[in-house]
């Protein structure tokens, strides 16, 4: 009888001790607020920089003359596992040689289907596309997620061949 009461009391004492051990850890962080790593997200938007490798969305690289490197070869379209990329190509006459040449009309990118697997970037023979570091993709309407990547009036850079 005494033994069981003794055990009961030591159990209570030990139980309280283990709880206090845990509270020692939480108490430490309570009194050391500098070690807390929480970021105030929408407020720190200006200083928040993603890593260079971060895969946010596919973009077509344009230079300052509004020229890109896409030849319309559809390698990215074939490499994509989800049908995210759709290239609608057109024929244009090369002013130098006078021959007709394949150029892109619209580079359609369905962001809603993209899994950011990076296979299109690896497949591109001319390094025309890359992954951008944007991450705020929320929109109010689903149709806004279908994007046209080539800018209006843009044309292919000189000297890029398939």
């Amino acid at each position: 009888m005494f033994k069981s009461i003794y055990k009961y009391l030591t159990d209570i004492f030990n139980g309280a001790r283990t709880l206090l051990t845990g509270m020692k850890v939480t108490g430490y962080y309570f009194f050391h607020p500098k070690e807390i790593i929480t970021q105030q997200y929408p407020e720190n938007r200006d200083t928040l920089k993603m890593f260079d490798m971060f895969r946010g969305e596919v973009v077509l690289i344009h230079d300052e003359n509004n020229e890109h490197k896409c030849t319309g070869c559809s390698a990215c379209e074939l490499a994509c596992p989800n049908g995210t990329i759709e290239i609608i190509s057109d024929k244009a006459i090369d002013p130098e040689t006078g021959k007709s040449k394949k150029v892109i009309d619209t580079f359609v990118y369905h962001l809603q289907m993209c899994t950011m697997c990076n296979l299109c970037i690896l497949a591109c023979p001319t390094d025309a596309i890359k992954m951008a570091q944007t991450f705020e993709h929320a929109v109010f309407d689903r149709s806004e997620l279908t994007k046209v990547l080539n800018r209006p009036g843009s044309k292919i850079m000189a000297g890029i061949k398939e």
């Binding site: 790593i37 890593f51 950011m116 697997c117 990076n118 690896l122």
Partner: peptide
């Protein structure tokens, strides 16, 4: 969070990394 930062910097994503390709790694 520390590990996902390592992944983000090297593999390009935090969770679904897709870092392996047959024959090696992506980058």
């Amino acid at each position: 969070e520390q590990i996902t930062d390592i992944f983000e910097e090297t593999c390009g994503a935090r969770l679904t990394m897709n870092y392996n390709v047959p024959g090696g790694v992506m980058f």
